[in-house]
Amino acid sequence: MITLLHLIIEFFKTGLFSIGGGYATIPFLYQISHQYGWYSIKELSDIIAISMITPGPVGVNMATFAGFKTFGIFGGIVATISLALPAFIFVILISKILKKYSENFWIKSILYALKPTGCGLLLAVGAKMFFDNVKTMPAICLFLFLFLVSFKFKKNPLYYFLFASIIGIILQICNVKLM
């Protein structure tokens, strides 16, 4: 019961504090993994990848996954709804005052600060994942290669995953130690 309550609170918090879309939920998901261990950091990175090839934003996918791991199907649904709840409340609150909302001085100042904060938090997670995962020679080579390629081709993340997966399989067939 306590865990269920924590699950609801943590994903509500994630929904409430992650502003600006994209990967803004990831720093919170990282923190949850660290604090509660409902899923490992490795699973988080797996789900980020899976969420690219399945429908839905990564935050939603991760909430479902974490909920499922703690309380089965019921948990998955509860955690996802907790994540969506702050958005529902906010939309109802501000829909009546739309114009005033976006021109309000306080809202503007908050957003001014939150945007670079979102960047900084995500960079910290990226850096942590880098130091955790990119340790062996093959990992460093693959990382450098993808990094260089990213300057030329920005688009579809799917290609990155496909390429990285194929390299993983080839290296395994060649008996290269990966981890």
Binding site: S45, A49, L146, F163, A164
Partner: peptide, 9 residues
């Protein structure tokens, strides 16, 4: 998933 974890970064 080894490859994918690097692509995610």
């Amino acid at each position: 998933f080894w490859g994918v974890s690097i692509a995610v970064i």
